[in-house]
Every structure is written in structure tokens, then in C-alpha cells.
């Protein structure tokens, strides 16, 4: 009595179908893709060397000189080239920080959620403690001790922003671990590690993915904060944050120097946030169409 089996139906295809209906998310995905491409090929697209000084050509306004499409800054450096290279820095920091955040947050969230008891209490009180400090202060304190490099900035941002992720993951695990498939794994003699990694983690993938996307946006923002405050990416290396710092003195006379990196940050953060929102809607298990 062999039972009929329905044709396989791609789960991914259905996720994509729901994602496609979300216009802003599509726009976000497009912006993110564009930013990634421009950052990846920054040195190809950039018309000039972003660190090349030419004091005879300071404050060229945008769209007036074809060699400097977006004008030049107070030292005569090409703004477009600096934006492109700054984007490379921002996205690198954003992605590395996101990976750090997600790894730390998921690890702590799964351990707290599945092990429960004293481990849960200790880990969650640690999270509460971390959340007591405003992130910017944490960042500045650490940045004062750690020499700023791309990697150290990313790690510092990542290690001060994983708390939300760990709470999301823990909540998800608390719900999942009561399911019978976990009891079945225990009845088979599966180890705790196996249950956490093989049974629970894949089921928490959707909220982790959404949190990861949103974390890129906040890491880009964080990087620009600390670079703006002078503790982040150091000149002459361009970053959107330190471009803003430099533009500060000329805001009333040459506003585009501040507006352009500001717009780049806004666009990136919005792009990732919309993408994250769209993913959340597309992956939300409550909207899942299977029985």
C-alpha cells in the first residue's frame, strides 16, 4: 500500500514569490546590489585616485568638471572616488560586523535558550548588562584602547551589537525546543550539540537572516558615527563618516561635501532595512502557506 507523494515544491520559490510582492524590498535589494557592485569595483569606476591632492582645484562644485563629476573637497580630492572607496570601507565594516554579531548572538541565544536554567540566567543577565550601556559609549571606550583598523572597527561594532540577535534567537529556540521533533532527537540519543546545531539552528534561520540584514544597516551607521567622531577609519583612507567630519567646517559654503556622504549613508541604511523587512515578510512562518 504505497502512498502517493505530492510533487516537490520549492520552498525558495514561494519565498521569492512573496518577496517580489514587496515593492520597497525589491528597491532595497536593488540598491544593495548596486552598492555592493560599486564597492567591489570601486577602483574601476573611480575616475581619480581618492587620496590624490590637488590644492589648485579645491571645492569644485558637482556637475561642472567632467574629470570631477561630483566635485572636489577642501584638499582638491575627487568626491566621487572618495564616495566609492568610502563605500567599500563602509560595506566591509558592515558585513564583517554583521557576521560577528550574528555568530556571537546566535551562539549565545541558542545556548541560553536550549540549555536553560543557570546558563540561561547568566547569559541573559550578561545581555542585560551589555544593553545598559549606550552602544556609542561602548564603542568609544573600546576604540580608545584598540588601534583603529578596518578589522578592529568591525569586530568592536560587532561585539557591541549582538545582544538583540541573541534575544531573538533565544526566543525562537524557547519555542522550538518544546516541539516533538526535538524530543524525538533526544529519544534517539542525540547530543545537546547535535540538537542545537542540526535540529534547532536551521529552524531559526529565518529570523537570523532578517536580523543579519538589519544589522548591516546599523553597523554602517555605527561606523559612520565613530569615524565622524574621529575614532574610526583614519584619514587619508576615505569613509563616509570621516568625509562628514571633514565637511563639517564648510557646511554653510559647500554643502554638497556633507550632503553626498550623508545621502550615501541614508541610501545604504534604507536599502538594507527595506531588504530586511521584505525578507521578514517573505520568511515569516505565520504567513507560510504549507498546511
Amino acid at each position: 500500500m504505497s502512498a502517493a507523494v505530492s510533487a516537490p515544491e520549492g520552498q525558495l520559490a514561494r519565498v521569492w514569490q512573496r518577496f517580489r510582492r514587496h515593492r520597497l524590498a525589491l528597491a532595497g535589494a536593488f540598491v544593495v546590489a548596486l552598492l555592493m557592485a560599486s564597492a567591489l569595483f570601486a577602483s574601476v569606476f573611480a575616475p581619480q585616485d581618492p587620496t590624490l591632492l590637488d590644492t589648485s582645484l579645491r571645492f569644485v562644485p558637482p556637475f561642472t568638471d567632467w574629470r570631477y563629476p561630483l566635485g572636489t573637497d577642501e584638499l582638491g580630492r575627487d568626491t566621487l572616488s572618495r564616495l566609492l572607496h568610502g563605500g567599500q570601507v563602509s560595506l566591509t565594516v558592515g558585513l564583517v560586523a554583521m557576521v560577528t554579531t550574528v555568530l556571537t548572538g546566535a551562539l549565545i541565544g541558542i545556548a541560553a535558550g536550549y540549555l536553560g536554567g543557570i546558563a540561561d540566567t547568566l547569559l541573559m543577565r550578561f545581555v542585560d548588562t551589555m544593553l545598559c550601556f549606550p552602544q556609542v559609549f561602548l564603542l568609544l571606550v573600546v576604540a580608545a584602547f584598540v588601534p583603529p583598523t578596518l578589522l578592529s572597527i568591525s569586530l568592536v561594532i560587532g561585539l557591541t551589537s549582538w545582544m538583540e540577535v541573541s534575544r531573538i534567537v533565544r526566543a525562537e529556540i524557547l519555542h522550538l525546543k518544546e516541539q516533538d521533533f526535538v524530543a524525538a532527537a533526544r529519544a534517539l540519543g542525540a547530543s545537546r550539540t547535535r540538537i542545537m546545531v542540526r535540529e534547532l539552528l536551521p529552524n531559526a534561520a529565518a529570523p537570523i537572516l532578517v536580523a543579519a540584514t538589519l544589522k548591516v544597516a546599523s553597523a554602517v551607521l555605527m561606523e559612520s558615527y565613530i569615524s565622524y567622531l574621529g575614532y574610526g577609519v583614519q584619514p587619508p583612507l576615505a569613509s563616509w563618516g570621516n568625509m562628514l567630519t571633514n565637511a563639517q567646517g564648510y557646511f554653510d559654503t559647500v554643502p554638497w561635501l556633507a550632503i553626498l556622504p550623508g545621502a550615501a549613508i541614508t541610501l545604504t541604511v534604507m536599502g538594507f532595512n527595506f531588504l530586511g523587512d521584505g525578507l521578514r515578510d517573505a520568511l515569516d512562518p505565520r504567513l507560510r502557506m504549507d498546511p
Binding site: 516533538d180 524530543a183 524525538a184 532527537a185 529519544a187 535540529e199 534561520a205
Partner: peptide
């Protein structure tokens, strides 16, 4: 040597496997 079959066949199989 001892195993179990659960009541709810929707909850007892890992949906991601």
C-alpha cells in the same frame, strides 16, 4: 532499544530536514 511515536505528526518531524 526503546523508541517513541508521537501524537502530532506535524510537530514531530523537523520541517527543515
Amino acid at each position: 532499544r526503546m523508541q517513541i511515536v508521537f501524537q502530532d505528526p506535524y510537530a514531530s518531524l523537523n520541517p527543515r530536514m
